[in-house]
Design a protein around this nucleic acid. Structure first.
Lengths: 198, 198
DNA sequence: CACCAGAGGCTTATGGACATAGCCTAAAGG
DNA sequence: CCTTTAGGCTATGTCCATAAGCCTCTGGTG
C-alpha cells in the first residue's frame, strides 16, 4: 500500500481543485468520493484527515474567505475614496467570476454557526473580509454609527449582483459590466450621503 | 390498496409544506422520501406524477415565483414612484422572511435552463416578476435604455440583502430594518438619477 | 540495529438517497 | 361483467456518507 502522503492540507487542496473544475455547481456537487478518487485513495481514508464532508466544506469556505479578503485588499491598496471602493468592488466580482465555486463556498451558512458571528474560525474569516470594507469606508468619513448600515448595503449589492450573475439570472449577458458599474456608483453615492464632510 | 388520490398538484402542495417546515434549509433538504412519507405513499408512486426530484423542485420554483409576483403586485398597487418602490421592496423582503424555503426556490438555476431567459416555464415565471419591477420603474420616468441597468441594480440589492439576512450573514440582528431602509433609499436615489424628469 | 508504536492507509458494513423495471389491483366505462 | 388503465406496489441498482476495526509502513528509540 504505497502511502499517498495525504495531509489535511493536501485533502483541502484537492477538494478546491474539484470545486474549481465543477464551475458554479462545484461546491454543492463536491463529494468525498471525488476527492478520494483524485487523491488515489479509498473514501474512508479521508476521514483520517477530515471529520466529515461538512468539515471539509467548512475548511474550503475558510480558505476561500481568506483568498477573497486578499483579493480585495490587493485591489484597494494605495487607493482612497470612490477609487478604492470601485477597485474593491471590481476585485470582489472578479474573484467570483474566476472562482465561482470558491465564492459560493464563502457564502454558505453552516449548521453550528452561532448567531453572534465570529465565534468560529469561519466567522472570524468572514469578519476579516468585512473589516477590509470597513477600512475603505473609513476613508470616506463614514461615521462609526452609520458604518453598519453602509457595509450591509454594500455587501447586499455586491453579493446580490454576483450571485445573480453566477446563477445566470441576468438573461443575455449584454451590458453586464455597465450594470455593475451603475450599481457600484449608486452604492457609492448612497454612502457619500451618509458621510461626514471633511 | 386504498388509492391516495394523488395528483401532481397535490404532490407539489405537500412538497411546499415540507419546504416551509424546513425553514432556510427546507428547499435544499427536500427529498422524495419525505414527500412520499407525508403523502402516505411509497417513493416510486411519486414518479407517476413527477418526473424526478429536479422536476418537483422546478415546479416549486415556478409556483413560488408566482406567489412572489403576487406579493409585490399587491403591495405596490395604487402607489407610485418612491412610495411604490418602497412598498415593493418591503413585500419582497417579507415574502423571503415568511417563506425562506420558497424564496430560495425562486433563485435556483436549473440544469436545462437556456441562457436566453424565458424559454422555459420557469424562465417565464421569473420574467413576470421582473416585469412588475419594470412597471413600477416606468412610473419613475426611467427611460427604456436605462431600464435594464436599473432593474439589475434593484434585483441585486434586494436579493443580496435578503440572501444575507436569511443566511444569518448580518451577525446580531440589530438595526436590520434600518439597514434595509437605507439600502432601498440608496437604490431609489440611484434610479432617480437616471430618470428623465417629468 | 532491532523493535515498537502510531499514523495512515485499507476492507467491510450500514443506512439513506434517487431512480428504474415490472407487477398488481382498484376503479371506471361499455 | 369484463376490459382497460391509472395509480399504486415490491424489488433492485447505483451512489453517497459514515462507522468500526484491521494491517502495514515509517520513524523514533533503546
Amino acid at each position: 500500500m504505497a502511502r499517498a502522503g495525504l495531509t489535511r492540507q493536501r485533502v483541502v487542496d484537492l477538494a478546491v481543485e474539484l470545486v474549481d473544475d465543477g464551475g458554479v455547481r462545484g461546491f454543492d456537487d463536491l463529494t468525498l468520493a471525488a476527492v478520494a478518487g483524485r487523491a488515489g485513495v479509498a473514501v474512508p481514508s479521508l476521514y483520517k484527515h477530515v471529520g466529515s464532508l461538512e468539515d471539509l466544506r467548512r475548511a474550503i469556505a475558510i480558505r476561500s474567505l481568506g483568498e477573497l479578503r486578499e483579493a480585495i485588499v490587493t485591489a484597494s491598496l494605495g487607493r482612497a475614496g470612490s477609487d478604492a471602493f470601485h477597485a474593491l468592488a471590481g476585485a470582489y466580482r472578479s474573484f467570483a467570476q474566476q472562482y465561482p465555486g470558491r465564492y459560493l463556498a464563502t457564502q454558505v451558512r453552516f449548521a453550528d454557526a452561532p448567531p453572534g458571528g465570529d465565534g468560529t474560525e469561519r466567522g472570524r474569516a468572514a469578519a476579516a473580509v468585512v473589516a477590509v470594507v470597513a477600512a475603505v469606508l473609513a476613508g470616506y468619513g463614514v461615521p462609526e454609527e452609520r458604518m453598519v448600515v453602509a457595509i450591509r448595503a454594500i455587501r447586499s449589492g455586491l453579493h446580490g449582483f454576483v450571485a445573480l450573475e453566477l446563477a445566470g439570472g441576468f438573461g443575455l449577458p449584454t451590458g453586464i459590466d455597465d450594470s455593475f458599474e451603475f450599481l457600484v456608483t449608486t452604492l457609492d453615492a448612497g454612502i457619500r450621503s451618509t458621510a461626514v464632510p471633511g
